[in-house]
Lab assay of single mutants.
Amino acid sequence: QIFVKTLTGKTITLEVEPSDTIENVKAKIQDKEGIPPDQQRLIFAGKQLEDGRTLSDYNIQKESTLHLVL
């Protein structure tokens, strides 16, 4: 699982696999929060994550925290 922290300070927990794409993660966030993926920007280690890449591409491991910017 990974954590996604929103600007409001809320933390969302997501069940993911390293092979999941960023697009996939955004879809999971939409399921939980109702935020359309095209409004979501995910930041990890100061980098904006691209939809077509996977979590493992960015070396995002379990218990990692991503930041969600709208």
Rank of each mutant, 00 (worst) to 15 (best):
V69Y: 13
E63Q: 10
L68R: 00
V4P: 01
Q1Y: 15
A45E: 15
E23I: 12
Q48P: 11
I35A: 04
E50C: 14
L7P: 14
Q40L: 06
T11F: 09
I12T: 03
K10I: 10
A27M: 13
T13K: 08
P36L: 06
E15F: 12
T65A: 04
L55S: 01
Q61S: 12
T11N: 06
E63S: 09
E15P: 06
K26W: 03
G46N: 07
L66W: 02
N59W: 05
G34L: 05
L7Y: 14
E15A: 10
R53M: 12
L70T: 12
L66C: 01
Q39A: 09
Q30H: 13
I35L: 06
H67W: 09
E63M: 10
E63L: 11
I2W: 02
R41V: 15
F44E: 02
V25L: 12
K28R: 08
Q1D: 05
Q48M: 15
P37W: 10
R41K: 11
K5N: 06
T6Y: 13
T6E: 04
I29E: 00
R41E: 10
G34R: 06
G52E: 10
Q48Y: 13
K28V: 04
Q1W: 14
S56T: 11
I35K: 02
S19M: 11
L14W: 01
L14K: 00
Q40Y: 13
A45Q: 15
V25N: 00
S64G: 06
K10G: 08
A27Q: 12
I12R: 02
K10E: 09
A27W: 10
Q1P: 11
K10P: 05
Q61P: 13
I35C: 06
L14I: 14
Q48L: 14
S19G: 11
I12P: 00
L70Y: 10
D57E: 11
I60T: 02
E17H: 10
T65R: 05
E33K: 05
S64C: 08
K28L: 10
E63G: 15
F44N: 03
F44H: 08
S64F: 08
K62Y: 15
I12M: 06
L7I: 15
L49K: 00
D57S: 11
G52T: 10
D31V: 14
E33P: 01
V4N: 01
P18C: 11
K5Q: 12
I43C: 14
L70S: 11
D20W: 09
G34Q: 06
L7H: 15
T21Q: 04
T6P: 04
H67C: 15
T21K: 09
T21E: 03
F3N: 05
L66Y: 02
T65I: 15
D51G: 07
L14A: 02
D57Q: 06
T6N: 06
L7G: 12
E63T: 06
L42A: 00
K28C: 05
V16M: 08
T54N: 06
L42Y: 03
L42W: 01
N59D: 09
I12Y: 06
K10S: 08
N59Q: 09
G46R: 04
Q40A: 05
Y58D: 02
D51N: 13
K28P: 00
I29H: 00
I22F: 03
E50V: 08
S19E: 12
I60D: 01
T54Q: 08
Q1R: 13
V16L: 07
S56W: 07
S19C: 12
N59L: 07
T13A: 10
K32G: 04
G52L: 09
I60K: 01
T6I: 13
G34A: 05
T54S: 08
K47F: 09
E50K: 08
I43E: 09
S19N: 11
F44G: 02
S56Y: 10
Q61M: 11
N59I: 04
D31P: 02
I35E: 02
T13H: 07
L68G: 01
N24E: 12
V16W: 12
I35S: 04
L55F: 03
V16T: 05
V4Q: 00
E23S: 12
T54K: 13
P37H: 11
I29K: 00
K28Q: 10
L14S: 01
I43K: 06
I29Y: 02
G52V: 07
L68S: 01
E50T: 06
E33M: 13
K47H: 13
N59V: 04
G9Q: 04
S64L: 04
T6F: 15
T6K: 05
L68P: 00
L66T: 02
I22S: 02
Q30Y: 15
N24C: 13
E17T: 10
L55N: 00
G46H: 06
T65P: 03
L7Q: 15
I12D: 00
Q61F: 09
N24V: 14
T6D: 08
G46Q: 04
Q48I: 13
R41C: 15
L7S: 14
F44M: 05
Q61H: 11
Q39K: 12
E15Q: 11
T8S: 15
E15K: 07
F44S: 04
D20T: 10
V4C: 04
L49S: 00
A27D: 07
Q61L: 12
D38F: 12
E50D: 09
D57W: 10
F3E: 04
N59P: 03
Q1H: 15
Q48H: 10
P18D: 09
L14N: 00
S56L: 13
S64Y: 08
K32N: 05
S19R: 07
L14D: 01
G9S: 04
P36E: 07
K28H: 05
N24T: 15
K47Q: 15
K62G: 15
I35V: 08
H67L: 12
G9W: 03
K28S: 04
I35T: 07
S19A: 09
V25I: 13
K47R: 11
G46F: 04
G52S: 12
I2S: 01
Q30L: 09
F3G: 03
P37N: 07
I43S: 11
Q39S: 08
P36Q: 07
D57M: 04
Q48K: 08
G34P: 02
P37G: 07
V4K: 00
Q30V: 04
K47C: 13
D51K: 04
P36H: 11
G34D: 05
I43H: 12
L14G: 00
F44W: 09
I22E: 00
N59Y: 06
S56A: 14
G46P: 01
L70H: 10
E33Y: 09
D31N: 10
T13S: 10
L55A: 02
A27P: 00
V16R: 02
I2D: 01
I22P: 02
K62Q: 14
D31I: 13
E23R: 14
T8I: 08
L68A: 02
Q1G: 06
I22V: 09
E17W: 09
E50I: 08
K5T: 14
Y58N: 03
I2M: 05
F44T: 02
L68C: 03
Y58H: 04
P36N: 07
D38M: 10
I43Y: 13
T65S: 05
L42D: 00
D57L: 03
G46V: 02
V16G: 03
V69A: 09
K32S: 10
K5H: 11
T13V: 14
Y58S: 03
T21V: 05
D51I: 05
V16K: 01
V4M: 02
S19V: 06
K62W: 13
P37Y: 10
A27T: 11
D31Q: 15
R41A: 08
Q39G: 06
I60H: 01
Q40H: 04
F3Q: 05
Q61R: 08
S64I: 05
T6L: 15
P37L: 13
